[in-house]
């Protein structure tokens, strides 16, 4: 597991970083994914730029009634930040962060890097397997060992996106700010993540699931003020009790009227698609009603709309229903 040779620089300003980045020069955050990818021989950049030495984007600031979270915050610092930890509306984000990885990985991993993780699929991570996602001709999971693979969105890649915070942030209506040589752009997470297609392929052969350009850096996560008046929950089902990727996860963000009716709803799913997935049918089922047992039943049926299980992962359909029920029942009065 010797890593290939590369040059390394500590970044001092974002301008010099984006001027240097291309397919052979990659930004390095906590390294919990990229260093592992390099050790496996799956990536071999000639140069790495350490983003952690940048002066900015390490903290939380208020913004437009919501929150602006620096993408270089570690997961541990994010969950411990009083502005986040003490905000009831961000309960789902804190749960998703603390459900992620292990204590050691949370002190290393940055939020930005977490949102940009590569899949944990065993075919993808095996350097001997030329799977479609890394430039090969087909997905070996589709007719192979696909217990942990996707239900939604179809192919050509069936590896689920591994991030928990991304699912919570999608339900919170978050956006990301990207910095590049031509300036900044801000995109809703709904538009930032894209299912991998044959049209989009990087110079290194990999198919991306975001619209981030090779010379852009994800610098900030923006959570809108509308989320501040709502309540949120994150439910993650795992094989182990801790330190595991989601089999499925559900994030819910609800605004309830004084009469207890759902005035706004966002539901996002993890572990079931190549990108964090909006469950719009479940949102529509919840909207306008109150959280009666019948309404929860309808939402649980709606959340699995369009699922197409593979040979070994049909259990995830039932898990999705259960996870959504578990999330919604936090707000019922029984």
């Amino acid at each position: 597991m010797t890593i290939h040779r590369f040059a390394h620089a500590d970044a001092a300003s974002l301008q010099e970083v984006v001027a240097a980045l291309d397919e052979t020069c990659l930004p390095l955050g906590g390294g919990t994914d990229l260093v592992a990818m390099m050790k496996a021989g799956l990536m071999a950049p000639e140069r790495l730029v350490n983003l952690k030495t940048l002066p900015d984007h390490h903290g939380v600031r208020p913004g437009d009634g919501g929150w602006r979270i620096g993408a270089l915050m570690t997961l541990a610092d994010l969950a411990a930040d009083p502005a986040v930890a003490e905000a009831p509306a961000l309960a789902s984000l804190v749960e998703a962060v603390l459900d992620s990885a292990s204590p050691q990985l949370r002190t290393m991993a940055t939020l930005g890097g977490n949102l940009l993780q590569r899949p944990r699929c065993w075919y993808f991570r095996n350097p001997e397997v030329p799977c479609w996602r890394k430039g090969g001709r087909r997905c070996f999971a589709f007719r192979g060992e696909n217990k942990y693979h996707t239900l939604l969105g179809g192919g050509p890649c069936y590896a689920p996106h591994p991030s928990d915070p991304a699912v919570a942030l999608l339900a919170l209506g978050a956006a990301v700010r990207l910095s590049g040589p031509a300036g900044d752009r801000t995109l809703a997470l709904d538009d930032f993540y894209v299912t991998p297609t044959r049209d989009a392929q990087r110079a290194d052969g990999y198919h991306p699931v975001t619209v981030l350009a090779p010379d852009e850096v994800l610098v900030e996560v923006l959570i809108p003020g509308s989320a501040a008046n709502a309540r949120s929950a994150y439910v993650k089902l795992m094989e182990r009790g801790v330190w595991d990727f989601a089999l499925v996860s559900v994030a819910v963000n609800l605004a309830l009227s004084d009469a207890g009716q759902v005035a706004a709803a966002r539901v996002a799913l993890g572990g079931v698609a190549a990108v964090p997935w909006r469950a719009t049918e479940a949102e529509e089922a919840l909207l306008g009603g109150s959280l009666t047992p019948e309404a929860i039943d309808r939402a649980a049926e709606a959340v699995v709309a369009g699922t197409r299980p593979l040979e070994h992962n049909a259990y995830k359909v039932d898990q999705l229903k259960a996870a959504l029920r578990q999330a919604l029942r936090r707000w019922t009065a029984d």
């Binding site: 390394h8 500590d10 390095l28 260093v35 592992a36 541990a76 050691q104 002190t107 290393m108």
Partner: peptide, 12 residues
């Protein structure tokens, strides 16, 4: 803070 030395570059 605890960290995994196997994923930490010495240069950092």
């Amino acid at each position: 803070e605890t960290a995994y030395a196997c994923l930490t570059l010495a240069i950092e």
